[in-house]
Structures are given as C-alpha cells and as structure tokens.
Design a protein around this nucleic acid. Sequence first.
RNA 1: AGGCUCGUAGCUCAGUUGGUUAGAGCACCACCUUGACAUGGUGGGGGUCGGUGAUUCGAAUUCACUCGAGCCUACCA
Length: 924
Amino acid sequence: MEKTYDPKHIEQDLYTHWENQGYFSPQDNNKASYCIMIPPPNVTGTLHMGHAFQDTIMDALIRYHRMKGNNTLWQPGMDHAGIATQMVVERQLNAEGKNRHDLGRDKFIQRVWDWKETSGGQITQQLRRLGASPDWSRERFTMDDGLSESVKDVFIQLYDEGLIYRGKRLVNWDPVLHTALSDIEVIAEEEEGFMHHVMYPFVEGEGFMEIATTRPETILADGALAVSPNDPRYSAFIGKYVWVPMTERKIPIVEDDYVDPEFGTGCVKITPAHDFNDWEVGQRHKMEIINLFTPSAIMNNNAPEAYRGMDRFVARKKILEDLDAAGLLVKIEPHKLKPPRGDRSGEIIEPYLTDQWYVKVAPLAEPAIDAVKTGRIKFVPDNYKNMYFSWMNDIQDWCISRQLWWGHRIPAWYDDVNNEIYVGKTEADVREKHTLGNDIILRQDEDVLDTWFSSALWPFSTLGWPEKTEALKTWYPTNVLVTGFDIIFFWVARMIMFGLKFMDGEVPFKEVYMHGLVRDGDGQKMSKSKGNVIDPLDVIDGITLDDLLVKRSSNMMQPHLAKKIKKATQRQFPNGIPAYGTDALRFTFASQASNGRDIRFDLQRIEGNRNFCNKLWNAARYVLMQTEGKDVGLNKNEKIRSLADDWILSKLQKTTQAVSKHFANYRFDLAAKALYEFTWHEYCDWYLELSKPILFSDQTRDAEKRGTRHTLVQVFETLLRLLHPIMPFITEEIWQTLKPLSGQTGDTIMLTPYPETETTLINTEANQQLEWVKTFIIGIRKIRAEMDIKPSKALPILLQNWTETDKQHFEHHQIFINALAKIERADWLTEESNAPEAATALVGEMKVLIPLAGLIDKATETARLTKAIEKIQKGLSSLAGRLNNPNFTDKAPTKVVEQVRQQAEQQKVALAQLEEQLTKIKAM
RNA sequence: AGGCUCGUAGCUCAGUUGGUUAGAGCACCACCUUGACAUGGUGGGGGUCGGUGAUUCGAAUUCACUCGAGCCUACCA
C-alpha cells in the first residue's frame, strides 16, 4: 500500500469492476426485499450538490441493506423533462437559424431523441463517480416504450372514470414557451412595481370611479367594476355604468364579497379573461369575457386599434400616456408585487383562456391523505406531513396538457365534424371501440402531457406495470423515497395518489425521507444564476481557482453579476479546491445529514474527513505490517486475547449496535460520528498503540501475539464493512488487501454480510479495567505535558494509597502502562513510608507520584494542583448543594440521588488526596 | 395573514423520554519527526446554550411571551 491515501488511484477502477461484475443487481429472490426508486433526474441535467447529497444517502441505504442480505434494488432512470429538453434542442436549432416548425413535429422529435442519445443523461455517468450502486441493467426512461404505454393506460382509465376532463378556463400561460403550466411550475416572488390609480367616468352624470391597478393595459378588457357590498362610499353607485377608459364600452358597477374595502380605493376593476380572481367574479356576475392577447401576449384584435400588435408592456406604457393625456390617470405609486413567473422561462405568466386537460384530483387526494394519516406512509422528519396535509386539503385540479412536442402525446382524437372526443391507445383502437368508419376524419390532440404525469407512475411503471410482473410483486411497495421537500407537491403527493389508485390501494413507498438543501459556505441557496454552485466532481477531483472562475462565469444568465461572483469565489476558494475524493465527500454528506436540516458546504469539514480516510488508510498499513506473512490465528493454534483485545472487541459491538440503530432512524450523522469516534479515538488512538507492546516485546508469548494479530485484523475487517455503505471505495480497496488475512472469502466487500452485534463480546469488566489503564496513562501524560518532560524520558513512579485491585491491575497490564506512559520503574509505597516531593495524578483513590527531583518545578506543580483542586471544588459544591436540598433528596428518584451521593463521595476523596499533596509540596 | 424550521465554543454542527462539571470536527495555543499516519501524536485554552418569564428538587431540553434568520401556503386589485 502507498504511504498516503490517494483516492484518484483507486476509485474509478473499483467502480468499473463492480459494475462489470453485476454486483449492483438484486442478489437473492428468497430474501426480504428492499427497494428505493431514484427520483429520476432530468435527462438534460448534470450532477449538482443536491444530487450528490441525495444519492449518497440512497447509496448508503442501498449498500447497507444489500450487505444486510436483503434482495436489494435501487432503480435508476431519468425523466424526459418536457420543457427543458425541448428548449435545449430548440436552442440548437436557433443557432442553425431554424425553428422546430421548419422541421415539423416528427423530425423535431427525432432530433430530440438524437440529442438524448449523444448528450443526454450525462448525470448517470456522474452518478457513477459518486460510487452509486443502482442496478443499471434496469435503467428506465419516462419516454421509453414501456413507460409510455403505462402513461396511456393511466390516462385512458382516468378519462373513462371521469377523473380526466378537458375544459376551457384560465391557465398559467407562458407567453415565451407557448405552453400552459401547472400552478406549482409558477413562482411568485416579490418585485418592485407600480400601482396606477385610474378614473372611470360615469356614463350618466358627472364624476368618476377611481380604481387602482398594477396592470393598466388590461383595462381594455374590463367587464365591470366591483365594490364591497357593505361599503357606504359606493353603495349608491351599484348598478350604475362607467365608461372603460380608451374604449367605447360601458361596464356596470357590481357588488362582490371578493373586494376588500380597506385595500386601495375599495373599488376594483374586473378583467375576467386576465386574472384568476376576476374570472371567478366574472362567472358570478355573468360578465362579458374579452381576451386581449395573442399566445405571445401581444395585443390582438379585441383591443382598440391603437394598441393592436403591441407587446403587453409596450401597451402598458402607451395606455398610461393616453390615460394621462385624457386626464384619467390620478397617480402612479411604487408598489411591491409578486408577479408570477414561469419556473423555466422566467417570464411573467399570463392567466390565459385556453382548452386544456385536467386531472380531477379531489377524489384521488382523499385516499392519499388517509395513507399518511393512518401511518401507512411515514414522513421523516415527521413534521413534513403538515405541509403535505395543508396542500392536499386544498388541492386544485391539475392541468396536465402542455403545448409542446416533446413528451407523451395525449391519446385523444377529435372528430371535428361531430365535435366528439375519443380517448384510446391508438387511432385504430379508438375507431374500433367507437365503430368509426374510415370516412370519419380523426385528428389527434396536438398536446403532450406534463412530465410529472409520467413521473407520478415511476414507482410502478419502472417495475413493468401494467403487466403483473415478478418485479412488481417483489419490490412494490418500495421501502423509502429519498427526496427534497421542494418536490413534495410536484412529485411525492402525485406518486402517492397514482400509486394508491393503480396499485390496488397499495402505497408506493412506506417512508419518505426528506433531506435538506445544500447551501454554500455563506448559507446561500446554490443556484446557477447566483454563480455559487459547486460541481461535486470538482470536490472529488479538485479544481484550480482559475478553472473555477472560468466555470462559474461562462454561460451566465445574468452577466452583470460576473464581478460579484468572481469576488465571492476568490474569497471562498482562494486556492481552488483540492482533490478530496468521493469517500471524503460522501462521509461529509453523511455526517451532515441530521433530521432533514439544510447543510452548509464546508471545505474544512471535507478536509477533515479526507484526513479521516488517510487515518484509516494508515491504520490499514500498520495492520498489514504486523500481520502479513505472520500467524494471524486463522488456524487452531492457541490464541490469547489481551485486555486491549477484549476491550476493542467490546467497543466494536457497541459501535455496531449504534450504527444499526442510526441507520434505522435515518440518522446518518450519528452513524458517521459513531464510526469516526471508534475508528480514530478507540481503534487508532488506543488499540493500535496498545497492540504495539504485545507485538514488539520478546516478553510476550506467541499465543498472545497471535491473539492480538487476530483481533487486529478481525476488528479492522469488521470496521471496513461497517464503513462501507458510507465510504465504498477506500473500504473495498483495503478490504481486498486484507482479505486473505481476515479469512474472508467473498469477491467483494459490498456483498459481504454487514456486521451484526455479538453481545457475548460486550465486556464490561474489560472496559472498566481498560479505563483504569487509560486513566493511569493519561495522568502521567498530563504531568509530562505540563511539566515539559520529554516523552522519551522514562520516569520512575511511586504509588500511594492503593488497593489490592489497583496493584493487580497494574501488574497485569503493566506492559501497556510501561509502553504508553514510559515508566522506568514503579514502587508501591506503604502507608507509613514517606514520599519525596512529587507531582501527582489520581487513578480513582490511588495517587500516582512522579518524584520532582531534577525534573519538576515545585511552583508549577503547586499551580497545577491548585487548579485541579479548584475544579473539583466547583463540581463538589454543586453536588453538595443538591444533596443539602431536602427538596432534591425527597423528590428526585432515589436512583438519581444515590448517583449524586456516590459522585460526591468520590470527589471528596479525590479532593482530600490532592489537598494533602498540596500541603505536602508546600511544606517541602 | 396562517403554518413550519432554526438560533448551543471563532466557524460548521450533535445534544436521545428534563438528571453528574453541555460535546465533536475544524480553527487556536504549547510541546513532540516515538518503528501506521505531520492529511500525524500528546496536552491545553474557549461556550451557561438568542432574550424574558413560568413549570420543576432539577431546564440547552417542557410551556408562554419576545427578538433574529430562513422556508412554505394564501392574498395583494
């Protein structure tokens, strides 16, 4: 093995080997199954920190259960990302001076498929770099044949049951992408804008009604003015008419509860075709509905001639000028508003009147709510269910049609002559089903379905539904969904609804683990436009500052931010990012994954965990050096275990127990912590050091050496298996080297059983004794450090106030103490004998004395003792305070009182010892 | 407006059903190239747990109020 750990040299080859060997496929159909569906990443997507975090968690769970012996499937795949993918290919066409209409639908779709084959799905390659172990042989794509069939089946069934319908109503319309969007694809964030106050003249008599609006251009399509029914200012005007400014139209003044008399002027213009609320009001009052816009949000022929052909924002300017000129513009005030923007295009969305397909969700939502209420689906952390309920209880119908070409085309045909809609798998099916002769011309709906419609089927469509496949039987319902809370409505809720509907009331997953967001070092959300994203591969492979700057400033959506981004990057990564390797990154993610909290990306934490890898690596080197070519006790030769052996075996069991518990609770942070603590502070800091005197000394017997070598290897090999789900590469690499010494015979650590706790090895006695040894050693080390005594200097020690047990412990374990505390010799003082001037350490009630002669400064020891005494006194006074309080002794459980009493006793003795020593030293 | 989360050492975070003197990693200080590891070893300094109040023998932990940060949902004419 190399002297230092270098992830670059090991990771990629191991991964290729694993994949080629088919280790990622389910192993044994007779075992209990375990299944996770990957949230299908977007086919246009590339790996970001959020994926890396999420995939680390899923892979850890998968590897853990695979090693536990479950018949484990991690189902990979991607979704076709309708809008995003179409945009990518359209951009390419634009660059060639063409658009999709030049190609026509079929050729365009072919072009998208070509793009998908050559450039799509980069992310699956990147996933491999993370060590992810899904069954690639089962990879699915939402647009592949099988999944497309499922989509049709679902659509047809829902239509037949009346749960899918076609309707003309307002939708969120993206005037740039020319498609409808569902509510959750629209983002409303606060922006600076204006409130315009406009007067509408009365048709009869003098005077005006004043309204306030943020969208003056829609005045042209007003259907009424509305006031609150109980507003005394306006009650006299209800039923009267006003002129719509800049038009020849008269509209009534109506009363409606929708109006808040406190807001603005208390009088609202109602524009049914261009506002969702106004639409409702319009329906109630049967108003004229005027649509002003073309699909590109350009004024159409319904607008007065002066405005026709103008973009909506140009028209706004123009109408404001005209209103002003007509003396109808009262004032314009700055106003904060939240314009709805499309999450893909970033354009302001228009409420727009079109024909669309909808899913009637209320009937589907009911059982979906119930599944969570009754605990058949559990959210982790639990509180996310509130979010789920609040949305599900007030769910809106889902607009599923999209005016795109890339996607699942809606399986509906129109007979324009008879104005009929037929839904079926193919045109032929439809004709047969409805006995339509060839003389009837059918036209298929031009639109495609929302990508999330197919994603909602993911947990069962990937397993072969609607066929009743073996895979479905084996892995549905899946065990856990690992995802971010941001798609709880987009995806999680819809999978639950469709799963219950189409899988005979069976939930798609039993648990939903919600992880937090990965933020940058300043706690900012990472986003491409902010230029603060980090490519996980750059953390794995490293990147120079210059390259990082180039990467972050190319392809920017807002070039004016370039300077700011450059500065922030230079501040956060003055030296770029060193190559930390996948295992360090994964371990860091795991150690941050607590209770769904957001995590901050912190290079120093990754560095610490890279060092942890190095520690593990070097421990392996030590183990190898001590065992390679030697008798490691795999034969029948006698083995004697030392105290250290018993102790580390016991600690190992505790660690195994803890890790299992934490995996079960999705507390990867605690699992990682337990493993770190054991590896570094128990195995390396103590056990390896304690093994040295046994292995290096000529005083110890072969059987003892053999016992220690055996423990050394066995514990380490077990540790590797414990760590493997989190750090797959380094553990496999070392494991392969260690395999012959450990007696393991498997081909790979990833298919070797996960360690189980062996309760018989939990050894309280050994633990207590080793604690005694540690206290002894630490006591002497402290004196050395504080007295500036070189570690190389062997010390004579004196023992005072000891018990027979102390003496026995010392005699049995002297070999450890000698080696780790470097003792020259030890003298056991009787009660009568006088000790010389010495520095003191306590082991229980026993005093360990190091004579000062020539080594130690009296003043330093005095100060040291004083400090120790003060510390104990402080603790003691708090303990005594409680014991002297009758309320405490009467009311607290006796167990606690007893504990405190004992504690106080011990402290008193220790205090007495130290005080005695202090008096002595002072007197000398 | 309603709901949720968070506020613990300089930084990033743990803290299980309230119970010893509140922990870890990183950073910091001192010493040490000791035969796995300087990506290391040994020892050390550092916080009273956002604030106020309440419950309790006992509160970082429960409750109320409050300040600050963030998120979600709804409304914003």
